[in-house]
């Protein structure tokens, strides 16, 4: 489709106030998607998606239900493979064939349903699948140290003890642990799928503060959200999806709530123009 030059693509990567390396990150974004298409049988889920995810910036992906946000996220994290299109990681073309490939590149995903085991404690969850061992036995001391440092560096300070089982944590704390788990593995890009869904006001504030801290560390963050309050609170850049297309990708400062809603519900000028063209033809 006509995503060649719609004039809406931002020239700059990270316009937010604390952009650590503005020139470098804007020149080559951490992840660059070009012309990504994906269909499941007869259903086309993604139409020629172009998206840049720069380091040190929070890119919020918004869109109505069924717009293709989750499919796009899963494509980036290696669960789906695109049918067409190119993926560039730090400027190099890559193929992400599995979640393992994604983690190897430095892409970690925090899923909506959290993927924490309730019965394990915080340390055990953070190291799940990557436990450290010494002489065949788990090296609890070293894992506890690292988990503690990671949580402290992200200022996740509300948990009483990192040896408490995850079931006893509040929703915000659980989300914080899930994010900290993603960050601990030297990741460069963190994908957050609805991190504030089902959270109260205070807990949402906690999680959003944590998301900002990730950006301030220089990580690339892509956050999917339905909640425009949250989006405008943290986003440096906003990408709007509509029926499988990116219909707007702009610095947050260039968008307001009303325009964003318009993009989300109608696809904005791009879609209207397209439709008119189709009707005219």
């Amino acid at each position: 489709m006509s995503n060649g030059d719609d004039g809406s693509r931002p020239a700059q990567g990270a316009p937010g106030p604390p952009s650590p390396a503005p020139t470098a990150s804007s020149a080559t974004p951490l992840l660059r998607l070009r012309g990504i298409e994906k269909h499941f049988g007869a259903v086309q889920a993604l139409y020629g998606v172009n998206l840049d995810l720069p380091a040190g910036a929070i890119t919020c992906l918004v869109g109505d239900n069924g717009a293709g946000k989750s499919v796009l996220t899963r494509t980036i994290s290696g669960i789906h493979q695109p049918d067409k299109g190119e993926v560039f990681w730090e400027g190099r073309p890559v193929h992400i064939r599995s979640p393992r490939d994604a983690s190897r590149l430095g892409i970690e995903t925090v899923y909506q349903d959290l993927a924490l085991a309730d019965n394990l404690d915080i340390v055990q969850n953070m190291f799940l699948g990557r436990e450290r061992t010494r002489r065949g036995l788990l090296d609890e001391d070293s894992m506890e140290h690292t988990a503690k440092e990671t949580l402290a560096s992200l200022r996740v300070t509300t948990v009483r003890s990192i040896r408490q089982p995850v079931v006893s944590l509040s929703g915000g704390q659980r989300q914080s642990v899930a994010v900290a788990k993603a960050v601990m593995w030297n990741s460069k890009l963190v994908l957050l799928d609805e991190p504030t869904a089902a959270l109260g006001v205070v807990q949402t504030a906690q999680v959003l503060a944590l998301v900002r801290r990730l950006r301030d560390r220089g990580l690339g963050v892509m956050m999917i959200s339905h909640n425009l309050n949250d989006v405008f609170e943290v986003a440096d850049r906003i990408a709007v999806m509509y029926l499988g297309r990116i219909v707007a990708e702009k610095p947050a400062s260039e968008l307001d709530r009303q325009t964003t809603v318009q993009y989300m519900t109608t696809g904005g000028e791009l879609y209207i123009a397209e439709r008119q063209a189709a009707l005219g033809a």
Binding site: R100, A115, L116, D118, N119, L120, Q124, L128, G129, R130
Partner: peptide, 19 residues
């Protein structure tokens, strides 16, 4: 042993963690 507990607690989480 850790994986036994993880699978019992949340098999999906264990699977995503590479277990």
């Amino acid at each position: 042993g850790r994986y036994v507990y993880a699978v019992g607690g949340n098999p999906e989480a264990a699977r995503r963690a590479g277990v």
